[in-house]
Amino acid sequence: MIPGRVRRRFRAGDPDAVRAFYEEFQRAVFAVTFRALGDRGLAEEAVQATFLQAWQASSRYDPERDPAPWLYAIARRAAIDVYRRERRHDESGDQPEMAALPETFESTWEAWEIRLSLDRLTGEERAVVRAIHFLGMSQREAAEFLSLPIGTIKSRSHRAHRRLAEMLSHLEEASA
C-alpha cells in the first residue's frame, strides 16, 4: 500500500515517489501489458510508457484516492498505443484506429486484480503458489523444489489459496 505522504509527493512529480509507485505496481502493470500484447519486449516498453505517462499526468492525480484504478487505465491505454503502433507497421493499408482490439485486452482487468492479490501474499506463500500454478508442480514436487517439508507446503498452499479466493471473490461474483 502506498502511504498518503508518498502519494502527495507523487502528485508533485517527485521521482522518488514515482520509484515507490513503480516498485508497488510494476508487476501488475507488466501483467496487464504482457497479457494484452503477448510479447515481452513490447510489454516492457508499455510498462515504461505507463509510468512515464503517469508521472507526466501526476498533477491530475488525486492523492486521496487509491492509485490502482488510475494506473490500470493508463497501463491499458499504453498497451493499446503499442498494439496500434505495431499494427500500423505490419498492415499499413488498414485503418488501425478503427480495428477491434484482440480478445487478450478483454482480460487485462482480471490479470491486474490477480497480480495485485499475489503481491499481497507473503513471499513464502507466493513461492508456493508459483510452484504449483506457474511451474505446474504437485505439492510434493513443490516441497522438494523449495526444500521444505510437505506439511509446510500444504499449510502455506491452503492459506495462500484461501486468501486468494477471498481477495478475488469479486471476480467470481462478477462472473457468476
Binding site: 501483467a31 504482457f34 515481452r40 510489454a43 510498462v47 490477480i114 503458489v129
Partner: peptide, 11 residues
C-alpha cells in the same frame, strides 16, 4: 489463469 506467464514474469 494463475498459470498465465503474464502473472509471474517481470519486466
Amino acid at each position: 489463469s494463475l498459470a498465465d506467464p503474464a502473472l509471474w514474469e517481470e519486466s
